[in-house]
Design a protein around this nucleic acid. Sequence first.
DNA 1: GTGCCTCCTG
DNA 2: CAGGAGGCAC
Length: 776
Amino acid sequence: MPDHDSTTLLTRQTKRRRVDIGVKRTVGSAIFTRARETLFDSMNQSHGPDQDGDCSLVGHGHGGTTSDGEKSNVLRKLLKRANSYEDTIMPFPGATIISQLLKNNIGKNGGSDSGFQGSGALSSGGSEIQAEDACSNSSRDQDSPSDCLSPGPPLPPPSSSSSFGRLSDEHLRAKRARVENIIRGMSHSPHVRSNDHRGDTSHNTIYRENKRKQRLPQQQHSFTQLVCSRQEQRQEERRQLKLQLEDMQKQLRQLQEKFYQIYDSETEEEEENEEDGNLSEDSIRSDGLEERHRDRGRHSHDELSELDPGLFLDRARALLREQALLDGDIEEDVDGRDEEERNGERVMKRRGGAAGGRGGGGRQLAETLKQELNCAVSQVVDTVVKGFSSPKQAVSHHHGCHSNTPAAPSSSSNSPTPNYHSSNPRLHCFGDVIVPSPLDSFGGLSGRLSGVPTPNDQTEALPLVVRKSGGGGGGENINPSLPPPPPPHHPSLHPSPLTASLGFSPPSFRHPFPLPLMGYPFQSPLGSHGGGAGYPPGPKDHHRSSPDSMDMTRETVSLRTKMAALGGGHLSHHHHRQSSPSQHGPEGLSLSLIKSECGDLQDIADISPYSGSTIQEGLSPNHLKKAKLMFFYTRYPSSNMLKMYFSDVKFNRCITSQLIKWFSNFREFYYIQMEKFARQAINEGVTASEEMTVGRDAELFRALNMHYNKANDFEVPDRFLEVAQVTLREFFNAIVAGKDADPSWKKAIYKVICKLDSEVPEVFKSPNCLQELLHD
DNA sequence: GTGCCTCCTG
DNA sequence: CAGGAGGCAC
């Protein structure tokens, strides 16, 4: 039985501080303005005292901070590692594409209309370089000019130096250099995979071609004759492609063999070293990896033939990351490789025979390997791309990407893709499909590789971000008059998202992938038609993106659930996508599901995560994590606020609802805990609410922290402790007063608490905020 | 009608 | 944490 008195009060108050984004609600800002005034008044009147009292109490609660702090340092490291491994685990997209293409091609021989169904599988390699919300982004929040200040004492950089000094002698350097060279060679080769978005330009070509082929029949659905002829043509192409891909795989296997030849000797030596008892931090970190490799090394010869190229490359990449983490300085030893190029094979053999012969041999080998890898991969990919795209029309723009394919590996780091921006720097036209240039996302690769941050990507993203934050009207959820929300005090809040994002990957190697799996990709200005990224401009901004929209989709939290529930059988019919489980990645499926569920959504024709767009259509686990951290600041975020702080998500009703639901769930848990502890206190004989404080060592706080900040890698703002204390006391008083007899007794408390929201630090607006917040 | 909220359930 | 129900405000 709803109680209309208190309920009304609560909801009214709550609503006022909300800005509804409903299509029909265009007066939000006006309402908001008034509401804020009203709120300030009421807050000043009724809750000032509470706040004052709280502040004094909080300090005392800090006693327990130290142990938590220590723990959190360790945990931060662990978390960082976990993030790194997340990346490491991801399949190497380039190779995955190859095998996937092959599979698809074989599977598609029936001439089905399945198009590029393998795209779903590609998503797992999601590599997004993240757009940064620079401080300019706060232009909208005039009230908080201090947003970009307060860098807080930076925590000491994760020390990965001392303990494994012995291990990281020349031996490790050599190894590191070799592996890095391998990988770099691969990633530089514009063919294999320059990276995911722009990357594997050639694979992308294939992919786009496929997509285009898939799309044409759809668009000209009625012209069956055309379809027939097209199918023939496609079958022919498929046959060719299949052959070429098989060839590619062969060559890749050869590369694997070479890799393992080296690795075998490597691992043997590795074992010897570790027997010395040098269990450094690094060796611990890379334990799993090492074991994996060692194990792999023992059986490598048996497995070589079956080894998935993706695994191979992935392993190489993982190894590189491991190496890169040791410390920065490697390379400089890349000279005189001409000789080695010629003698590559012999060097290789020598190497295999002499396990102890490190030093110069290792570097030579590295060079050799690098060269060979580059050559082989370049050739293969080039062949395939040419063969496949030549019969195609309208790939002229794209071909510019191949002109420099045989780029010299080592020098390519300085000028890998000069021609990419030759025509339109932002657009690449693939036949009838216009997509954002993938290079916009990765154009900075060369710079990153050479250690010089290139703001190319950012320059793309920033205008968007600014637009976003500026256009949304008054959605600020700030209550300046309240106990002044303390300035963002988290020590790890960095004012410069830009630097933070770049700091994520090891300086020696700006790998395009290592960026978090969570997928906080770039904000592409062309993310979707009409600016999918530019939501807030108006509350009615429920734009639909056209089928050509290249919006990237990643798995969403909820989608997984739906997937599981629906068993993956049902697909949106919009896309004529016959889903064969093996070809259709779960993400693609889930996307379709969400599409069909959110009927008002755009019918996305392309689900490729590599399509170059950056705005996600789904919420990732990291979004959830971010939301939880935001809960420490705001319990009742407005939907506008959510839009601002989740600017890397393409909002629609579903997303908004989900985010709101999340916060609703957070609140639920929060209030349940409050009630529980309040009753507990009463049972324990507490008579006055003032006797209760909430410090960081309080059980209540631990429970909450466990829920919202499980890894304890985020320093909860003091303000949250204050609010928690207020809440606890409110519950306590209400219960003591017997108000809990009223079924709606909590609502009065909600009404109080909803006014205690504080401003969420600007950092949270950055898609990279998790890195920035947790990486110290 | 729509958006958001709480409560309940699984 | 997601879904659904019930309710209120716009």
